[in-house]
């Protein structure tokens, strides 16, 4: 077993295969805690966790909050509007103030790639990246991988298709880095503007035809199309996107019976995924949410608690 020696989790790109496996195994041990009636262990008792969200998020913040509470940590939530960043204070100064308040763990969501790395180099507190721009969202990547591994018992050799706006997606990047390290075959699917061929340099395959991967994929992970951002120069419109890349019911019928349908949420029913498919038997979208708590417990525990896996 690889010992965990990092104080931070800023991305999966920099982790070794052993470190990723360590977090997944630790998460498996913690998953049991959520099944009990008394959903709490004292692993982080007396520790203070600050959820510092400079970009809005409900589900990731809530998931970290629940994970921290199950580990008996004290949790404070700070959002961008309440923070001093609005008043012109720099990220570094705000973070130094959080450290002066003796925050043991800072969970950071920020629109700038590298912002977690930036803080991790300057603060003694543990920094957990909850999404930094288009760079990484490592706990989302881990929970996706955890969910796949739980269903298949392995990652190596599986064919994972990730569909959607890959270029701007931190979820896609964390999945790509983690899955490739663990030996999966990863195909990125979407319009050529959002899935440029150069992604092959990272070791993934690139496809612009979703129909080509349906019969072979073990997992289809659908990313949200951010139509509120109206990337008009990247694709002509939602209607065309749905017809070319949406996981419609007829397409879902071509999937292998055991193929998992995943989505990091929040889903746009009728856009990247048909409503029936989202609720269908192959969908593990809500299990992802449940697993997210176990994965985040593992990450918080590894970075701020200790390197030993607690007895299940």
């Amino acid at each position: 077993m690889t010992a965990w020696t990092r104080k931070d989790l800023t991305g999966l790109d920099e982790l070794s295969t052993g470190e990723i496996t360590f977090l997944l195994d630790t998460a498996r041990a913690f998953k049991g805690v959520g099944e009990r009636s008394l959903k709490k262990v004292p692993a982080l008792r007396g520790k203070t966790l600050v959820n510092f969200f400079v970009e809005p998020s409900t589900r990731t913040r809530t998931s970290f909050e629940v994970a921290a509470m199950r580990l008996s940590a004290d949790v404070v939530n700070i959002s961008a509007t309440a923070s001093s960043l609005q008043k012109g204070e720099t990220l570094k100064d705000t973070a130094l103030n959080l450290q002066a308040l003796r925050a043991d763990i800072i969970v950071l969501r920020h629109s700038s790639p590298g912002s977690s790395k930036f803080l991790s180099q300057r603060l003694g507190s543990s920094i957990i990246n909850a999404g930094d721009g288009a760079h990484e969202h490592p706990t989302q990547g881990l929970l996706d991988i955890f969910t796949i591994r739980e269903k298949f018992g392995k990652i190596e050799g599986l064919h994972i298709a990730i569909v959607g706006d890959i270029l701007f997606s931190r979820v896609a990047r964390s999945n790509i880095f983690g899955l490739l390290k663990l030996g999966a075959k990863v195909t990125l699917v979407g319009p050529s503007t959002l899935v440029p061929k150069s992604f092959e340099k990272l070791g993934a395959r690139v496809s612009h035809r979703i129909d080509d991967i349906l019969a072979d994929a073990d997992v289809v992970n659908l990313l949200r199309i951010q139509h509120e951002r109206q990337r008009k120069e990247y694709f002509p419109g939602l209607g065309e996107y749905i017809s070319l890349f949406g996981l419609t019911k007829p397409r879902a019928e071509k999937l292998k019976p055991g193929c998992l349908v995943m989505h990091p949420g929040p889903i746009n029913r009728g856009v990247e995924i048909d409503s029936d498919v989202a609720d269908g038997k192959q969908s593990v979208i809500l299990e992802q949410v449940t697993n997210g708590i176990a994965v985040r417990m593992a990450v918080l525990y590894a970075c701020a608690g200790g390197a030993q896996i607690p007895a299940p």
């Binding site: 721009g133 288009a134 931190r170 990047r173």
Partner: peptide, 10 residues
């Protein structure tokens, strides 16, 4: 714009 900008999300 290249492999590293893709990797880093910049």
């Amino acid at each position: 714009e290249g492999e590293w900008s893709l990797r880093l999300g910049l």
